[in-house]
């Protein structure tokens, strides 16, 4: 791979980390990192004067995220193809796919049962770990 493309991958990782940071800040500010807070945000809480999220409201949030998750997952994962360990890295890319799907769709599961709130947090933290793992592999590949 040309050296210029290696540098582009580092820039991509830097921007992605900034995007992940801003995502975590929004999550913390609007929802919170506890199961009870996730339940309150989506299902409402009369004591805290929080209205439940409507189905349409959840769809409006989901729509851009589906495209962004797909694109970000594809771009970040496809760089693994250029590393020496890409065959072993497939499971990380596939794990990230399912974690992002869980993160995106779990609010709708909460409409069935509030206990599914843990899936939102599992998908959120799991996808962050998977993204960081991919970035770690890409950084290791820079030294090869």
């Amino acid at each position: 791979m040309h050296r210029a493309y290696r540098v582009l991958i580092i820039y991509f990782m830097l921007f992605s980390l900034l995007l992940l940071l801003s995502g975590a800040m929004i999550f913390e500010h609007k929802i919170g990192f506890g199961i009870a807070e996730v339940q309150s945000y989506y299902l409402g809480d009369a004591e805290r004067f929080i209205a439940p999220k409507s189905f349409n409201g959840m769809l409006k949030t989901l729509l851009p995220h589906l495209f962004v998750f797909g694109l970000l997952w594809f771009v970040a994962s496809h760089f693994l193809r250029f590393t020496a360990h890409y065959k072993r890295a497939v499971w990380i890319a596939l794990s990230l796919f399912w974690l992002l799907a869980i993160e995106a769709l779990s609010p709708f599961f909460m409409l069935v049962h509030e206990a599914f709130a843990f899936l939102k947090l599992f998908g959120f933290f799991g996808s962050y770990v998977a993204f960081l793992a991919i970035f770690y592999l890409l950084l290791c590949a820079q030294k090869e």
Binding site: Y11, F12, S16, L19, S22, G23, I26, H29, K30, V68
Partner: peptide, 20 residues
């Protein structure tokens, strides 16, 4: 703060995709 974070989050994605 919520509006700012949403604006910032969107800006990061749009800018990174364009410059990349």
């Amino acid at each position: 703060e919520a509006s700012f974070l949403e604006f910032w989050h969107t800006e990061i994605f749009m800018s990174m995709m364009l410059v990349f």
